[in-house]
Design a protein around this nucleic acid. Structure first.
Length: 561
RNA sequence: CGCGGGGUAGAGCAGUCCGGUAGCUUGCCAGGCUCAUAACCUGGAGGUCGUGAGGUUCAAAUCCCACCCCCGCAACCA
């Protein structure tokens, strides 16, 4: 059987994740992992934090901490937030581990031996007071074109001109503010991407029509523009030391070891369990690897990382399917940590249960374009879909049953055309749901899911069990029996997206999650699972509405203009 | 400047590849029902599909051309 490897992009450890990070990679990866596990597939879901790079060093210095300690602290906070959202990682780690160092060296040495690594002297801004070379964006000064005083060394935010740090007037370090900047020569290693261009082009071409447009077109765009050699080392202290003579004191560039982190995290995790990471990462014929990420990450996962793996001379498991997402905006603007704009994960679960957010985000996933999050849209979806359609359906079945039959599922009795028509409808809708989930078209999958819930209400409206209860109790029993079987169906279908709610629904019937493949779904037999007589537990409504008062309160709290 | 994505009813989206009387959800209006979280079910109004009285065609949201607007990218922001 094909093994299913699922990776979510690794958010940068410096800074806490918000709803945009969640929908951009973590959540859809989790939903897909849960979906496949439910089908009975062999799944390994890998995630973690990206830890190297200048932002970590700067962040640690700000908090007066050792960089490694700083990463450890934020790594734990990330994990805590993901736990709050029930992200079901099989392996969760960081990119600064020994395991990742070992793999980074292994891949680097392979690339080096195969002639894909070259040396080059470059010029770079050095800050004596900070005791370090500065990345371009950490040099600030006056823009020579428009006079803007806070232009960054890579680009002026005001006039958008691309700059070189050497052009800036009065250059200063963004870290210390020191103007004691000199341009020094320094030697670095470069990955020869141009040598791999043809190979990569051929490979990407095989993904046409299979990968989402955003993934394929982004990769094509980079290849079309022509690949350039790319520096993979930096003059920093925090990172993996470059294992090559003449490069003492230098480390690998964060983007070189970050994607290798998927492998490193897996190794660290499976070594502990006594399992073999090679079964997943050096096994391309038996592993299907699905990657999830925001659009900003796509070039690195379609060009840079595959090139590193291919050039190393080993047969690594490459990406089979790349699910890329656009960005989630917050009320028309960007989520921003510095501006305290948006909703962060710890705040979100403090307001409403994780499943509310999970449902909204998946139903509105930014698959085709950037998507706007607003409190109003959130409230409307939660109130209508979860409360009115799904929650109310469950509630009316339970109340009516209790009133007429007590706390046991009524007998199925005789099936009529009302039921067979429902079966036909469900067969079509569930087939749609499966088709969309298998194709990772989440918005459409959730629209189908909703239609399936609506079908239940439709069935109840049509069969009017409250009337049958007065004239033909057995008939009312059949209708409500079908209602309970629908609750079980809904619970199992909801499991990937809303695991907590799904479990509550199963609890009503005293059931446990089960392995079920909805491909080839047959409503007739599926809705005959509960024959009648099974005990059930009355429960309070599963969802609460977002009241108009709460909407106003949240708008003020999160500064939604 | 360039490249990529987007511009379809008040709002959020599908349809565009493979042209054939514009679809879904929400909101609004009306009706039904009254078991249920004032919920559920049905019907209706609402759009010249960014602009160009542009091109191709018997026919264009869908193909071609020009332009406008929004978002992103531009390789040391990961």
């Amino acid at each position: 059987m094909t093994k299913q490897l699922i990776t979510s992009a690794l958010p940068y450890v410096n800074g806490l994740p918000h709803l945009g990070h969640l929908i951009g990679c973590l959540l859809p990866a989790d939903v897909y992992a849960r979906y496949l596990r439910q089908k009975g597939e062999d799944v390994l879901f890998v995630g973690g934090t990206d830890e190297h790079g200048t932002p970590s060093e700067v962040g640690a210095a700000k908090e007066g901490m050792d960089v490694a300690e700083y990463c450890k602290k934020y790594h734990a906070l990330h994990k805590q937030m993901y736990d709050g959202f029930n992200i079901s990682f099989d392996c969760f780690g960081g990119t600064s581990s020994d395991a990742n160092k070992e793999l980074t060296y292994r891949i680097f040495n392979g690339l080096d031996q195969n002639g894909y690594i070259t040396e080059k002297i470059t010029k770079q801004a050095y800050s004596a007071d900070d005791g370090m070379f500065l990345p371009d964006s950490y040099v600030v000064g006056t823009c020579p074109y428009c006079g803007y005083e806070k232009a960054k060394g890579d680009q002026c935010e005001k006039c958008t001109k691309l700059l070189d740090p050497t052009e800036l007037i009065n250059p200063k370090s963004a870290i210390s503010g020191s103007s004691n900047i000199e341009i020094k020569e320094t030697k670095h290693l470069f990955l020869q991407l141009p040598k791999m261009q043809a190979d990569l082009e051929k490979w990407i071409e095989t993904k046409k029509g299979i990968w989402p447009d955003i993934a394929y077109t982004t990769a094509k765009k980079w290849l079309k523009e022509g690949l350039q050699e790319r520096g993979i080392t930096r003059d920093l202290k925090w990172g993996f030391p470059v294992p090559k003579d003449g490069f003492e004191g230098k480390v690998f560039y964060v983007w070189f070891d970050a994607p290798i982190g998927y492998i490193g995290i897996t190794k660290e995790c499976l070594d502990q369990k006594g399992e073999h990471w090679e079964d997943w990462w050096l096994n391309p014929d038996e592993v299907r690897h699905t990657e999830f990420m925001g659009k900003d990450n796509i070039p690195f996962h379609t060009v840079f990382f595959p090139a590193s793996l291919r050039g190393s001379g080993e047969k690594w498991t490459e990406v089979s399917f790349l699910k890329g997402f656009n960005f989630l905006n917050f009320a028309g603007g960007k989520f921003s940590k510095s501006a305290q704009r948006g909703i962060f994960l710890d705040q979100a679960v403090a307001e409403y249960p994780a499943d509310y957010w999970r449902y909204w985000l998946m139903a509105n996933a930014p698959e085709s374009d950037d998507t706007n999050f607003t409190i109003d849209l959130f409230a409307a979806t939660i109130n209508k879909d979860l409360n009115d359609v799904l929650g109310n359906f469950i509630n009316r079945v339970l109340k009516m049953s209790e009133k007429n039959f007590g706390t046991h599922v009524p007998a199925q009795g005789t099936i009529t055309t009302d039921e067979t028509e429902l079966y036909q409808t469900l067969n079509v809708l569930v087939a749609d749901y499966v088709k969309y989930m298998d194709g990772l078209e989440f918005r459409k999958a959730l629209a189908s899911l909703r239609e399936i819930w609506v079908a239940g209400n439709n069935y109840i409206a049509k069969t009017e069990p409250w009337k049958a209860a007065k004239t033909d109790l057995a008939r009312a029993g059949t209708i409500l029996n079908t209602g309970f079987n629908l609750i079980r169906l809904y619970a199992l279908l909801n499991l990937p997206v809303m695991p907590t709610v799904a479990q509550k629904m199963l609890d009503i019937l005293g059931l446990k999650p089960e392995t079920v493949d909805f491909a080839g779904f047959d409503a007739s037999s599926f809705l005959s699972f509960l024959k009648g007589g099974e005990a059930f537990t009355m429960t309070e409504p599963l969802f609460q509405k977002v009241t108009p008062e709460r909407v106003e309160e949240l708008k003020i709290k999160y500064k939604e203009a």
